[in-house]
Amino acid sequence: MVITESRNPKSAELDTMSAVEIVRLMNEEDKGVAHAVELVLDDVARAVELVVKGISAGGRLIYAGAGTSGRLAVLDAAECMPTFGTPPEMVQVLMAGGQAALTRSQEGVEDDYDGGFAEARALGLTPNDVVVGLSASGSANYVRGVIDCARAAGAATVAVACNPKSVLGDIADVYIAPIVGPEVVMGSSRLKAGTAQKMILNMISTASMVKLGRVYKDLMIELKPSNKKLTGRMKRIVAVGAEVDIDEATRLLELADGNIRLAVVMGETGLGPEAAAQRLAAVGNDVRKAIETKC
Rank of each mutant, 00 (worst) to 15 (best):
K235G: 02
V158G: 12
A36H: 10
R214G: 07
R190W: 05
P273W: 08
A177Y: 06
L123S: 12
S139H: 13
V93F: 12
I237T: 15
A161F: 05
V158Q: 11
L75T: 14
R251H: 13
S69I: 03
E243Y: 03
S205A: 11
G169R: 05
A64W: 02
K228H: 14
G97E: 01
E254V: 15
V146H: 08
A120V: 05
V131D: 06
T86P: 06
Q92A: 15
R190M: 06
V48Q: 12
D286P: 01
Q278V: 10
V132R: 02
I3M: 15
E183K: 08
V167F: 11
L262N: 02
V158W: 03
L123C: 08
M26N: 07
T195D: 00
K228S: 15
V51E: 06
I221P: 02
Q197C: 09
K294M: 00
L39R: 15
G58Y: 06
K31C: 07
D173R: 00
P9T: 13
L94Q: 03
G59A: 05
S11N: 06
L25Y: 07
G124F: 09
V180P: 03
C162H: 01
R279K: 15
A249I: 04
G181V: 00
T157E: 12
A277Q: 13
E183A: 11
S11D: 00
E268V: 09
T103I: 10
I171M: 04
V93G: 02
G194S: 14
A140N: 06
L123P: 04
R251K: 15
L41R: 12
P127H: 08
V265C: 01
V44A: 00
V33S: 06
K228C: 00
I62M: 07
A207T: 07
L168T: 01
G267K: 02
D257Y: 03
V44R: 04
Q278T: 09
E29M: 10
R214T: 01
V44E: 05
L252K: 11
G133H: 07
E38T: 14
G133S: 09
E29H: 03
V20Q: 15
R288F: 10
K228L: 14
Y63V: 01
P9Q: 14
L61C: 11
V23Y: 13
V264M: 13
E49F: 01
N8V: 09
A277L: 11
T4Y: 04
G154W: 00
V130Q: 09
S208P: 13
L255P: 05
A47V: 02
L201N: 10
L72Y: 02
K224E: 14
I62D: 08
A136E: 00
V2E: 12
G154P: 01
S208F: 12
C149N: 04
I179M: 07
M220D: 04
